[in-house]
Simulated scan of single mutants.
Amino acid sequence: MLTRLKMLAVATGFAVMTGCASVPMESAEADAALKTFAAPPADQAGLYIYRDSFAGKGLKKSVTVDGKVIGETANKVYFHKLITPGSHQIGTESEFSDNVIDLMAVAGKNYYVRQSIKVGVFVGGAKLEVVPEAEGQADLQKCTLATSL
């Protein structure tokens, strides 16, 4: 009996870590327009936040910019936001507390932040990292634009 319970627990955990979560999506036209990676207006910076990790496909994770939720990520989705130049905090919900990174934005430049899911004790955690422009643009080709709040 104990072996069956262990197998059920492992199967459930695997399903949660690899299943697919869905979030509200924007139009294909809006997605295509943002994938041209045009320079933002001269007085703003562009921020792309995306998730392309294999692990945790069944999990949704909230993403914040300066403490305000912009949406929930699922695998292979991204958000785009125009931000003012200067210091910003990008955050994501994780297992025990939010993970936050600081970003110093320069006007007229795009920034690319990858959210990845990591193994946790009870549920997968999440981390953020700023990635180089070429890497972010290549990764975003495999993602679709999610609706921001």
Rank of each mutant, 00 (worst) to 15 (best):
L2P: 14
L8G: 04
A9M: 13
A9S: 13
A11I: 14
G13R: 07
G13V: 13
F14Y: 14
F14N: 14
A15N: 09
G19D: 02
S22F: 07
S22E: 04
E26L: 03
S27A: 11
E29Q: 08
A30C: 09
D31R: 11
A33N: 12
A33V: 14
L34F: 03
P40Q: 05
A42S: 14
Y48E: 06
I49M: 02
I49T: 06
I49Y: 00
Y50Q: 07
R51S: 03
R51H: 09
F54C: 06
G56Q: 10
G58H: 10
L59Y: 12
S62R: 12
V63L: 03
V65E: 00
V65G: 02
D66P: 10
K68S: 05
K68D: 04
I70T: 01
G71L: 03
T73A: 00
T73E: 03
A74F: 01
F79R: 00
T84C: 01
T84G: 02
G86P: 03
Q89D: 02
Q89P: 00
S94H: 05
S97V: 13
D98G: 05
D98M: 09
N99V: 15
D102M: 05
M104Q: 07
M104R: 06
A105N: 07
N110A: 00
Y112V: 12
S116F: 10
I117F: 02
K118H: 11
K118F: 08
G120R: 07
F122Y: 13
V123K: 14
G125R: 03
A126G: 10
L128D: 00
L128F: 04
E129F: 01
V130S: 08
V130L: 11
A134F: 07
E135Y: 07
G136V: 08
D139Q: 08
Q141W: 03
K142F: 07
C143G: 02
T144V: 13
A146N: 08
T147F: 06
S148F: 00
L149K: 14
